[in-house]
Each structure stands twice: as structure tokens, then as C-alpha cells.
Nucleic acid binder design. Structure first.
Lengths: 299, 299
DNA sequence: TGGATCAATGCCATTTTTGTATCGATGTTC
DNA sequence: GAACATCGATACAAAAATGGCATTGATCCA
């Protein structure tokens, strides 16, 4: 497997397209640089550069690899900086992670309440997908996450803050748009804009389970991670989709949302979660706000 | 600077919390493993693990570094795989990158047209920020990007597809919500929900330039990358914001959009761009669709 | 108190990396 | 066409890095 130093060599040659100048830039001589590139290519089993005694050109694979290499080097530098910053100890406030969908309605409501009840809490907001939030909670990068729980995580405490049904999203001129209440069987054979199994795993599973239990096999036409993009594709006529009810707060033009009759209803659940061992006092304040929201408001 | 092999050592020890077992896992003996960890710590100038002869514990910095280390290792593996896949040559269709905002209106319209005019084009959609699209265009990962041009890129060909003014987003119960046409001077002193200088660089610069030219210094309260999240925070009362007119297609509940009087108007411009040397014939088809949209439709 | 466990350190052998010198290929000039 | 310059690859030797064995020091348990 390659090392980051190999990537540095590759990036230098790829940018200079000249082994001598690249070597000078790395404070090496040309022969070891030549050998490092060969090592890298051997490790990958991919030719990254076509070279003669007179010219160096990136192959197609080399051109594809270059931004990846740069990205890895950049992330490595960032990781080193972040480690030093963490070690130096920086005072925190309350860092709140949140998913995109929670930003449509729940987050605004939470923030409004929090500002009214605890105006001295300094809030830092970080949008990230639920899987990234789990890691960020474990490491203390965020204090609280608004996320989708996929299975029991005993190191976290969590409360359910939103339970909402899925609704059908259809173009406003779609046959199903005129029906008051849609049945799952109405979706049979419809082109379907689906969730990405990687980046929107929670919703992908929720919908897949629903279809499996109903014996439906819709025709998937795209896999997308973001709700607003899904609504855009529905608007464009690519198909219909099932989206959490919170999407109605977007008021996406050209798309109608329809109640779907299901028993039991497929509910999308949003949790607020924090690490039990996190001693940040602002978490207790947030928890009180959350419990007051639960008892007085519904999604 | 550290190497990926150092990260492998660290991850093994961090997961095992025992140098002997971690060493066995790496097919090493314990002493060199101990030294590699010391090297890594020395390189970072950060203590990652507190250890006695009896126990190994992650420090706070170590806990923060662990997911970064894992991520780097994962990305490195992915980069190797991707390089091999590229080298083996895979036939493509038309891969289209697009920004989140273009997903609100332009992309759905484009897709609708394209499906009508060229139904045999197999479209692969990838949402990514403009800076990532530039890299993806250069490497052939996407054929065409819907993106914000930040400066002239002579290796790309581009056409402007949307030019839209910024509008003021305010909570519907805000004093400015009742005014028909807002002036920039009305924004003086207002809490302002701003764009992230990293992830929404184009809009950050556009707004910053506008304020600098108008001699305004608003009070920034948050830096956010996604428009719909900005609208959510505006709804929550954190402040007002300037958003591209396309946001009106959202009809975001609780937020009103107001025309802002400016001369010259600050226009947000979206381009379709492709690499001049990309010979994918589907690009020509897309270009024809784009030129027809330009002559018959406006944003 | 003695024995077991486990991370750190010392010393040495092995492996890897780097630099110098040279070779082979290619392009330019006369 | 020959001579020269340029530039990546290869050979050889020296320097640096890595891994293993043996040992030390600290801690825990019976």
C-alpha cells in the first residue's frame, strides 16, 4: 500500500510534468523520485504517467488520481492541525450537529426556543449526515446531534424529537396528484426517485422495508441523497418519491405532497443524542428546552 | 509529517488499547510498534495515548484524531480502487454535476427538456459544490458541471445559464417584511446569517463585495453553506440573509423574500461548463438543449 | 515477596531510501 | 549526419529507517 510521501511525489511530478523540477521542489534528486513513482505505480498496479526521455504526461488514471491524492494530503494536514488544536484545549460552547431535513422545520423551532430560554448559550451549528454525527459525538466534536438512530448505541443518550410519516411527492400534473389519499398499491410500476443506499441509508432502508412488506417493486430511476434534489427530480417528471412530512415546509414549487395510507404507518424518526459522559452543562439546558417542546408542540 | 502506516499503527492501538495485541494484529512485535506511535506523536507534537505498564487510554486529542485517521485510511483505499477502475476503462454516459441551488429550479427544467429531446441519454447525477466540480471536470469524473465560475478557466468551455439577483430573506413577522422594496441601508446593524467562506465561497464573496461597496458592516451571527438551512435560521429569527432568487421556488414557510434595490444589481450567475477536450458526444446534445432553453426561458 | 504482565529502551541486523555516476532515447543545431 | 543537450531509467554504494531480541522498570495479584 502506498504512503503519503508517495502521493507528495506524484502530485509534484503531475504538476511539473518534469521529474527534475519536481525533484528539486521536493528537495530530492531525480533518480529516487523516479523510483518512488514506479513504486507507487507498482503498488496500485496502474500506470499514472506516460513518459519518454522528453515528456511526461498524465494518463487518464493519473488525471483521475491527482485530485484524490491532493485531497488526501490536504486532509492529512488538516488532521494534524486539528489534533494540535484539540490538545491545546479550546473552550467550548454547545456544538450542535444536524441533518438537512431537520433544518427545514425542527432546527429553526429549536433555535427559536433556545434563544428565548437561554440567550447566553453560544451555538455552533454543523450540518452533517447521521453517520458522521455518531463519530463526531464519540470524539466530542459535537455535543449534541439531531440524527437518525440506526441501532442502539449504549454510549449515547437520546430522545425522540420528531416522528413523522412519509408522504408521496408527485409532480403537480401527475395522475396521483389529484387523489386525496394515495394507497401504496397506486405506486406499482411507477418510476421512483430513490434514496442513496450510502448517503441516505436511514431513508433507503425505511422505504425498502415498506416496499418489501407491501410486495411492491417500483422502478428505481435515480439514487439521491438530498431531499430537495429528490423534489427537483420529481418536479422534472423523473418519477415520484416518498419524503418525510417535514418536506412540506420547503413549499417546493411544482410538487405536491400526498398522504399515503399505510398500516402501520412508516414513520421517520429524528432523535437528539449526546454522549452520556459529556459534562458540558449547556446540554442539560438544551434537554430542558427539548422536553418542553415535546409536551407543547407536534410535528 | 506522518505516513499512512503510522495511522494504521495508531488505529490498531486505539482500538485494542493494548500494544501487544495491536502489534500481533499488524504482524509486528510490540517494541517497533511502540516506537512508531512515539514517532507519530513526535511528528504531530501531540500526545495521543496515555499509557502505563498496565493500561492504554486515548487522550482527548487521540479520540479526536482517531476518526480522522480512519477516514484517511478509508479514502486511501478508495483512491487505489478508483485508480484501478479508471485504468481498466469504463464506458460512460453523461455525468452531470450540479450545485444544491441549481437543484431547486434550473436542474429540474433542464432534465425535463433533456428527457423530451434526448430520451436515450443515460444521466448520472452528482451533487457537489463548485470547487469539487472543477476538479471533477478536469479528471473526467463529470462531463458537465452546473457551477459558479470564480475566475477564468481556459481549459473549460462554459455558457451562462442563469443570472439572478440576490433577494432579502426575512422572517414573515420582521419589520422589513412589510416593505415593498428593501434598500441596502435598511440592513445596517441587522443580525445577518452569512455564507460559509469555505463551502459557499461564491456567495460569501458576492455578499462581502456588495457590503464593502455599500459601506455596510452587518453583524454576522452564523456561517452556513446550504441555502435551505439559511432560510431555516432566518425563520427561527436569528437574522436576515441575502439569497439567490431561485430560493423563491422553495416557498419556505415562515420566510418572505424581498426585492433589494441595488445599482448595479448583484447577480448570482450559474454556468454550465465542460472540458474542451472531452469528446463525449452527449455533451453536444446537452449544449443544444441549453441553448434552446436560453432563447425561450428566463429565470 | 515472588511471579506475571506490559510498555519502553538498548542494541543489532535487515530492509529501504537516497545520491552519484552512467546509460539510453530523443530533439535541436550546425 | 554528427555533435551536443536534455531528461527519465538503471546500477552501485552509502545513509537512514525499520523490525526483532533481550532487557528494564512499573504495576498488579496471589
Amino acid at each position: 500500500m502506498f504512503e503519503l510521501s508517495h502521493l507528495r511525489c506524484f502530485v509534484a511530478v503531475a504538476e511539473e510534468l518534469h521529474f527534475g523540477r519536481a525533484a528539486a521542489r521536493l528537495n530530492l534528486t531525480q533518480p529516487p523520485l523516479s523510483r518512488q513513482i514506479q513504486l507507487l505505480e507498482h503498488t496500485l498496479d496502474v500506470r499514472l504517467l506516460d513518459r519518454t526521455s522528453r515528456s511526461v504526461q498524465l494518463t487518464r488514471a493519473g488525471r483521475s488520481f491527482l485530485p484524490e491524492a491532493r485531497r488526501l494530503l490536504r486532509l492529512a494536514e488538516g488532521a494534524a492541525l486539528a489534533a494540535r488544536r484539540t490538545a491545546s484545549g479550546e473552550a467550548g460552547s454547545l456544538t450542535l450537529g444536524f441533518t438537512a431535513v431537520s433544518g427545514y422545520d425542527f432546527l429553526p423551532r429549536l433555535i427559536k426556543r433556545l434563544r428565548a430560554e437561554a440567550p447566553d448559550i453560544d451555538l455552533v451549528l454543523k450540518e452533517m449526515v447521521s453517520s458522521d454525527q455518531f463519530e463526531a459525538l464519540a470524539t466530542g466534536q459535537i455535543d449534541v446531534g439531531l440524527l437518525r438512530m440506526t441501532f442502539n448505541r449504549h454510549e449515547l443518550q437520546a430522545v425522540s424529537v420528531v416522528r413523522e410519516p412519509l408522504m408521496l411527492a408527485a409532480p403537480e400534473d401527475h395522475p396521483l396528484a389529484g387523489i386525496e389519499v394515495v394507497h401504496l398499491s397506486d405506486l406499482a410500476g411507477q418510476p421512483f426517485v430513490a434514496y442513496s443506499p450510502y448517503e441516505a441509508r436511514y431513508f433507503y432502508d425505511l422505504v425498502a422495508t415498506l416496499f418489501a412488506q407491501s410486495g411492491l417493486a417500483p422502478h428505481y430511476v435515480q439514487h439521491i441523497s438530498q431531499i430537495h434534489t429528490i423534489l427537483g427530480l420529481v418536479k422534472a417528471g423523473l418519477g415520484v418519491a416518498l419524503v418525510p412530512r417535514a418536506a412540506r415546509h420547503l413549499g417546493f414549487e411544482g410538487v405536491v405532497l400526498k398522504t399515503v395510507a399505510m398500516e402501520p404507518p412508516a414513520l421517520a424518526e429524528l432523535h437528539a443524542a449526546w454522549r452520556a459522559s459529556n459534562i458540558n452543562p449547556a446540554i442539560a439546558t438544551l434537554r430542558r428546552t427539548l422536553s418542553r417542546m415535546e409536551s407543547t408542540e407536534s410535528a
